[in-house]
Amino acid sequence: MSLFEFCERVQYSPLLSAMRSSSWVFPLIASIHLMGLALIGGALLVVDLRLLGLGLRHQPVAQVARDAERWLLVSLLVLLPTGLLQFMCFAATKYYYLTAFWVKMAALSLALVFTFVVRRKVAMAEETRMNPVWSKLVALVSLSLWSTVAITGRLIGLP
């Protein structure tokens, strides 16, 4: 089965066809996705700002990172299923052809790996042994990666 056939099968499955027939379902799912966007923004920003020496700058980085991680996971639990449902609704007629969608998926994979491997390690490390230049660089890379995810995500929704 090709990728396109897979997208077709998903989009025209009985469940998704039923979902599409209601005009309320799609905007409601999109709204919940936006709530996840807001939350992930907060959970990422507090840590990245802290790494840049802004925001909660009197707290240890590791503590801010640990506190934020729980809500980062919650936001992903909101974003991933609602994102998946939006993809499934128009997989074959829209997403399959959309460069912005595939760029978003690539950026998302990179952002997730970077956040949970590199940034996590840097944030949890003993601060005194960490060169502040590295912390700032990690924050900037994190912000760039997630901005790419957000902007390409926004492009998917444009006419």
Binding site: I40, G42, A43
Partner: peptide, 13 residues
Amino acid sequence: VLTLCLFVGTAAI
């Protein structure tokens, strides 16, 4: 839309 991250994101924390 994207300002949601900054406004509602930090407010939510």
